Computed example of a mutant assay.
Amino acid sequence: MKYRKNSKKLAFKKDKEGNTIWSFTCLDLDEFPLIDDFKIKIKYNGEYLGNHLYFINTQNEILASFPWWDHVDKDLINMNIENIPLGPINGAFDDLEQGWHIYIFEHNNYVYILEGEEPCCEEFEVWFKVNKEVYINEWIKKINDIKNINSIPLISFKCNKFISNIGN
């Protein structure tokens, strides 16, 4: 999968003294490119890291990700629509770790996503918007997929293994 970045960086505005204005309402939300083929993908990254979650497009380009959310499937099984990564414009969801920061907020039926390369960054190479209904539906699909996978009774696997070993 290839990482998709914007051709220009988006930065928080500065006041007259050069201090950063930490407000999404100061950003020109019309500049955010609309991703109309938004998807959520879960990809296995080995036994130690487990599954990770990626925001992608239909060309399988990574739009944004959660690089420190190891074994995401173990969290998704307990999630519902009320606790997906999303907040209002004045209370955006944000998460950060070493070398990474993401903000996700909703405003006027769009979800805006900004991903930076440092905690508390002021500039973002990754920034886009998605129709809110599409964003929420993708989360619902992924959560339901994980719950359905994990609801398959373990006994069926054990029975199949047992049956396949009967003739040996």
Rank of each mutant, 00 (worst) to 15 (best):
N160G: 11
C159K: 14
G116Q: 05
K39N: 15
N160E: 13
A92F: 04
L154W: 08
N108C: 11
S7Q: 12
I143S: 11
F162R: 13
F105W: 02
L29M: 08
N131E: 05
E123Q: 14
I152V: 14
I155Y: 12
L154T: 14
I146Q: 04
I163G: 01
E122T: 15
N131G: 00
N90A: 06
A64Y: 02
I102Y: 05
T20P: 03
N144C: 01
A11P: 01
N6F: 00
D36K: 15
K132Y: 04
D70C: 12
W22C: 12
Q98F: 12
F124Y: 11
D75T: 07
K147W: 03
W69D: 10
E17H: 09
I56R: 06
I35F: 10
K13E: 08
I62A: 07
E97W: 10
F105A: 04
K161V: 04
I42A: 12
F124S: 05
L63M: 07
Y54W: 06
L49F: 13
L53M: 15
N60Q: 15
C26H: 14
Y110V: 04
Y103R: 02
K8W: 00
Y103N: 14
I102G: 00
G50W: 06
I35G: 12
K16T: 06
D70R: 10
H52I: 03
P67T: 01
N108A: 11
V134F: 01
E17N: 14
N108H: 03
W22R: 14
Q59G: 08
D37Q: 02
I89T: 05
Y103W: 15
K2P: 02
S23H: 01
E125W: 12
W69N: 08
L76W: 00
P88R: 12
K161W: 09
L86A: 04
E47P: 03
E118I: 11
E61L: 09
F93G: 05
P88S: 15
N144P: 02
D30L: 09
S23V: 01
N19C: 09
D73T: 10
G167T: 08
